[in-house]
Every structure is written in C-alpha cells, then in structure tokens.
C-alpha cells in the first residue's frame, strides 16, 4: 500500500501516543552548488554557508544546510524564492555557481513524539545517535533517498521526492501504530 500524498494539501499521516507524522505545507527550496571562495554567495544570502557536511546555518527565514562538499539546500518561504534567486544571480560573475529551484520536487514530513527516533530506525541503516540536534543529512530511509533534519531530541523532518512520498508515508504510518502498540505492551 502507499498513502496518497498531494503536495498542495498537507495531511496528518499518523498520530499516536508514540509519534506523530504530518506532511508540512510546501516551502521554497533551492539547490545551490558552488566551490571556491564563498564570500560572494555569503554576502548575497546574508548568511555564512556552512562547509561541514551535515551542518546548517540560519538567517531569518532563510536556512542553508550543507549536504555535500559543494552542495547546499536553501529553504525559505515560497514567496522568497525569486528574491533569493535574484540575489544569487547578482553574485554569479563573482563566483559562478548553480542554483536550481527544487521547491516542487519533494514533500516534507514532520516527525515528532517520544518515539520519533525509534521510528527512524525502522528505515534508516545509519545510527541515529550520530545525528545530534540541528544535524541534517542526505541518507536512506527504507528504499528511498531522503534528506533528514534533526530539529530536537524527539523531532525530525524528512524531505522525500514526490513519487516516493506515498510509499515512505505508508511505512511511517505503519511504524506509528507499531510503536504505539510497543508502548502499550511495555505499559
């Protein structure tokens, strides 16, 4: 089974005592690629791009997460995308780079609750303990490549490409119920 996911109409995927999974409203997302002296881009963005993979920086509504040695995902309110694109375009001559709008490519699930971390372990081979609060990684969940954000001890976000979202949502929903049953049995 897979759950029908509509990017424009966020829904709650699962909500149990153990964990809650909810699809989030669309956000603006840009894939930024560059190398060399990032000063021009930092200036255009008004933040310092983090250079250690798995870390992020935030300035106001704009956040930048480093996913690879020359790769960042920028997130912002949808209405800000054009402005950020324009600001980066102004820095192109100083530091040629690539900006690609991927706002419509994926949906985001918000995963919260006392067993949020355990829910991640039904699909993530990597050790969740290696991702502290504030960490972000591209990784594997079940058979889908996802970008996983750890926002707190019990809070994650997961970006999933549209066509994988229904399948991933179904796995998460099954897990929500399974973990709640675990909690009930454990008393």
């Amino acid at each position: 089974m897979s759950i029908s996911i509509s990017p424009l109409n966020p829904t709650v995927i699962g909500d149990t005592a153990a964990v809650r999974v909810a699809q989030m409203a669309p956000v603006g997302r840009l894939s930024l690629r560059a190398r060399g002296d990032l000063a021009a881009l930092n200036g255009a963005l008004g933040l310092t791009l983090p250079t250690k993979i798995g870390t992020r920086a935030t300035a106001g509504d704009l956040s930048a997460a480093c996913l690879g040695p020359d790769e960042w995902v920028l997130t912002m309110p949808e209405g800000d995308v054009a402005g950020v694109e324009a600001a980066l375009a102004g820095a192109y001559d100083a530091l040629p780079h690539s900006v690609t709008n991927i706002s419509a490519r994926e949906v985001t699930f918000e995963i919260t609750g006392p067993m949020a971390e355990t829910l991640m372990t039904i699909g993530c081979p990597r050790d969740m303990a290696s991702m502290g609060e504030g960490a972000v990684r591209r990784t594997l969940f079940d058979t889908a490549t996802v970008v996983l954000w750890r926002d707190g001890a019990d809070a994650f976000r997961m970006d999933v490409w549209n066509s994988f979202a229904g399948f991933v949502a179904q796995t998460l929903e099954t897990g929500c119920r399974e973990l709640a049953a675990d909690m009930a049995r454990a008393g």
């Binding site: 996913l67 690879g68 040695p69 591209r138 594997l140 490549t145």
Partner: peptide, 13 residues
C-alpha cells in the same frame, strides 16, 4: 584492491 565507491545516498561523491 583499489576500487571506487560512491556515497550515492549521502553526499553523492
């Protein structure tokens, strides 16, 4: 054996 791998579900390198 000297060989190549790709961190395909991670940083992509």
């Amino acid at each position: 054996h000297y060989e190549r791998w790709r961190h395909i579900h991670g940083c992509g390198r």
